[in-house]
Every structure is written in C-alpha cells, then in structure tokens.
C-alpha cells in the first residue's frame, strides 16, 4: 500500500519568486527504501524539508498524501507524531539542553500520539543504551547538550540514533552520508539496515552512489532541476556514478 504519494508538487521559497520544485511525482510504499540522487541545487533537500513541514517553503501546486491523508494539513510536530522523521543534513545545536531531556520529551510526545504510555526513567534509559549501540554511539554523549561540541560524525550518528529511538514510519535521511569517513559511513549504514522493516520506509537523499553500496535501495530516482528525471533500480545509481548527471542537465528532463 502506498505510504507516501507526492503528486505534481510545486514549491517556492517564501517571500521569493523562485520555484524550486517544479512538479515532483513520487510514490513510496510501506517498507520500501528509495534513494534520490542528483546534483547540488536540484531540489533534493527542499523535498525533504517540505515533507517534514518546514514553513519557509510554500507549496504552490500539487499534493502530498501520507497514510492516505493530506500531509500538508499537518504542523511539523504533528507529522513527527504521525511517524515522519527527518535526519538533518546539518543537525542543530541546542545549548544547555541535555540529549536526555530532549529525547525523553520527543519519545514521550510521539508515544502519546500513538496512544502509548509514557516511558518511565528506567525503561527510557534502557532503550537509550540499546539503541545507542545500533550506531555505536557513546552513551555518555546522551548526557551532553544536544549536538553541542559533537564532531561531524557524531552529529550524523546522533540523527540515526534518534531515528532508532522514535521508530518512525517514514524516515527521510538528508545527505546523512556527507562528511562521513568510510568507517563512520559503514556504522551509520549498518544502523539503518538494522532499522529496516516491513512497516518502515526510507527516503535516502544523497550525492554519491557509495552510500548505496551499504544500503541497498529498492528504487533510485534522479532529481534534476526540480523534477524526477529518471527512476530505476540500483543499477541506475551505478550508471550515474560512471556517467555523472551531465546527460540529464543537457537534455530537457523527461516528463
């Protein structure tokens, strides 16, 4: 069943007359892993932000349905509660806010929305230790302020750790692989692979095919100039790595 249906999505930046997404169509079924590749400025991260509910983007046309409902009707926090998760390309620092407090609020807010009981302190800490292991994250990081003083790799692993804690239905990973060395990339990918399930879909946004060596996608899409220019299986990613995006940029994008 279709979990996410994006149809003819047109998006502009608030206050500016620039259209970034120019008619995106994308369907993701439950449990599927999709990858969107494309050159800088093609609109990949904008799509991620719009899915998560960032307000500075304005949807001028088209629709997004999630679990059969109109996603655009929901506030960002409601989308999170409904199981939409965004792993940020640039995770934000929250000085003085401990990871523990932040996560407990987040986990309980999502649990409440699902009609589950709040996690007690002991259960919560147990879950933290268990899920931190998935991405080989030092559990002591949880005592520090959110993302403050974290290395680039720690920030990215922390995003996947939060994904593991919040157990979303649709996880969007916005260039989680960028800035990671090969070992960290493997750790993060292993974590994601362990989190794959029949109920959980992934949308991976990346520049490089190398991420897809570790996380095998069901579908690969090429985004160029605000549109999906081509879709295929993982072989498309390999071809892209060899040929580059030039071919798509030269030719007018196929409808």
């Amino acid at each position: 069943m279709a979990l996410l249906e994006v149809e003819n999505l047109h998006v502009s930046v608030e206050d500016e007359d620039i259209e970034i997404l120019k008619g995106v169509d994308l369907t993701i079924n439950e449990g599927e892993v999709h990858a969107i590749m494309g050159p800088n400025g093609s609109g990949k991260s904008t799509l991620a932000a719009v899915l998560a509910g960032r307000e500075e983007y304005v949807v001028t046309d088209g629709s997004i349905r999630y679990k059969g409902e109109d996603l655009l009707e929901l506030e960002a926090e409601e989308r999170a509660e409904e199981g939409v998760f965004l792993a940020f390309q640039y995770p934000v620092e929250l000085p003085g806010v401990s990871m523990t407090n932040f996560l407990r609020e987040a986990v309980n807010s999502v649990r409440e929305a699902r009609g589950e009981e709040e996690l007690g302190a002991a259960d919560f800490l147990k879950l933290v230790r268990e899920r931190a292991k998935l991405v080989d994250l030092d559990p002591d990081l949880v005592k520090r302020s959110v993302n403050q003083g974290f290395s680039g790799g720690e920030k990215k692993r922390n995003e996947i750790f939060q994904l593991a804690m919040l157990e979303p239905t649709l996880a969007v990973l916005d260039e989680t692989d960028s800035g990671l060395d090969i070992d960290a990339l493997r750790t993060v990918s292993d974590g994601v692979n362990k989190l794959r399930s029949a109920e959980r879909a992934f949308l991976l946004i990346t520049h490089y095919q190398r991420l897809l060596d570790y996380i095998e996608p069901d579908h690969v899409h090429v985004m160029v100039n605000g549109r999906i220019a081509e879709s295929g299986d993982k072989d498309l990613a390999i071809r892209l790595e060899e040929e580059g995006y030039e071919r798509f940029q030269r030719e007018p994008a196929a409808a």
Binding site: G53, E77, A80, L86, L94, G96, A113, L166
Partner: peptide
Amino acid sequence: YCHQRGLGEEEALKLIVNG
C-alpha cells in the same frame, strides 16, 4: 529541529529557554 522531533511550540521554547 524540536518540532521535527514531535515537540510543540511551548514545549520547544521551554526546553530552549531552560537550556
């Protein structure tokens, strides 16, 4: 960032100010 993790306006503000 807070909203994306399921926190509403007031919850987010409380966390940030307390921090």
